[in-house]
Computed example of a mutant assay.
Amino acid sequence: MHLKPILAATLLFAAPVLVRSQESPSSAKRGIKVGIRADTISSPRREIFATWRAYVNNEPERFASSPYWISGDQKRWPIFDLAAAWIYFGAAGYPRPEATLVSIDPVIPGHEGAADTFIVRALYTTTDSAGNSLPVALTRTFAVRERDRWVLASPIPRLTAAWTRVRRGRITFIFPPTHVFNERRAERSGRFVDSLSRAFGIITPPPINFYVADRPEDLAKFVGVDMAVPQTSFGRAVPGNNMILSGLPVYGEWYPHELTHLVLARWLAERDVFGTMDEGMAHWLGGATGRPFPVLMAELSHELATRPLLTLDSLLGPGHRSDSLANRAAAGLLAFANERGGVNAVKAVLTPRKGKHGPDHLSSAADALGLHGSLLDAGWRAFVRLAAQK
């Protein structure tokens, strides 16, 4: 069996182990700033601020269960604070973002005394090599009462309560009243999930909640991010929540890149697949940032032609790089494996040997395809050139 029928029909988060988190020994050193108009003295703002500060100091990027977050969100979603990904993983290569409280206000302005829901706004910043402050995200988190105490809560259930829900296969599409639902794209996504699941022997693919926004800014806002680093709000899969977030009109209800991540998340995790190969699958079956697979191969072919020192080993060997070029190289290798040996060859490439420097996918590919040494590199290069012309 080959994966071509899937193409024709066509962990950002891994599900965490939920453990009770403890106050980090380093949390006191981080410090939290308070903006000039943020009231942290009057009640209930004082109590809300204490809850928010404790939560921020408790390493929310670990996505562990938290006594400071509403229990309903945590029961519903392992990744209950989606904004944390925008904050802590949106500025890779920079120091961990630090928080400044901007304001704590009731949802309905002017209803101070009777308010049972507040909004906590915070600005997260990092620094460059010269010490300049760089904004990463401006967030909006709800604060509500639970068992006579203030806890934090996700904006999603409240902001999407009135959104339309349409089910197609195992996917429930959730979108605002202003969005024009694309039936053809939705049906295509449903078929893609079924085909990919069958190809990899996933008997019961999870039911998927697929949120559709018409602009990246709208997508970010409904998860609680009013400002984010550019290109972080196009869309993403949240396998832990069986959730797709789609924020670009070019994708809408048809987002095979992120659907690939979600459907195969557990299968890949069980085999300790290197992250670049995971991205390679998504690049191959779903393209990247609106560019289809042949365009990605054309880009890769150009790089290989102009940089002769690049090899399959330098791009995908154990312990090597993890970047957009490596992702495209992985996509080409997986497509090459499918061309030569079908889905069983793809599965073999994605079942790496255990090397001293990490998962060794190239050795698995060489065995699966019967191409060892320079033959594997040569075959892969030839395939990339041909794929770039399609």
Rank of each mutant, 00 (worst) to 15 (best):
S43W: 05
L333N: 00
N338H: 03
T289F: 14
A288H: 12
W380V: 01
I36R: 13
V212F: 05
H2E: 13
L386G: 07
T276Q: 06
A15T: 13
P60W: 03
I104Y: 08
S314C: 02
A345T: 09
S374I: 02
T306I: 10
A199N: 03
K390H: 10
R271E: 11
R184F: 09
F173C: 05
G72F: 11
S65Y: 10
F222R: 11
T141E: 10
P106V: 05
W150C: 08
D377R: 00
S43M: 10
R184P: 00
E183C: 01
L371M: 15
S65T: 14
V343W: 03
Q22N: 07
E303C: 04
A8W: 03
P25V: 10
A326D: 06
L310W: 01
G247Y: 07
I104G: 06
D278T: 14
R307E: 04
G280I: 02
P359F: 08
A64C: 08
I104A: 07
D218T: 06
T51W: 04
R185V: 02
G93S: 12
N338F: 05
A345D: 07
E47T: 07
D226A: 10
I48N: 01
F192W: 13
E61Y: 15
A64E: 12
S42R: 14
I174C: 11
G113S: 12
I32L: 13
K354G: 01
A365C: 03
G35Q: 07
S364W: 02
S129H: 10
V223D: 09
L248V: 11
P239C: 06
D272I: 04
T160H: 06
I36S: 14
L371F: 02
P177Y: 08
G113P: 00
L7P: 04
L296P: 03
D218Q: 12
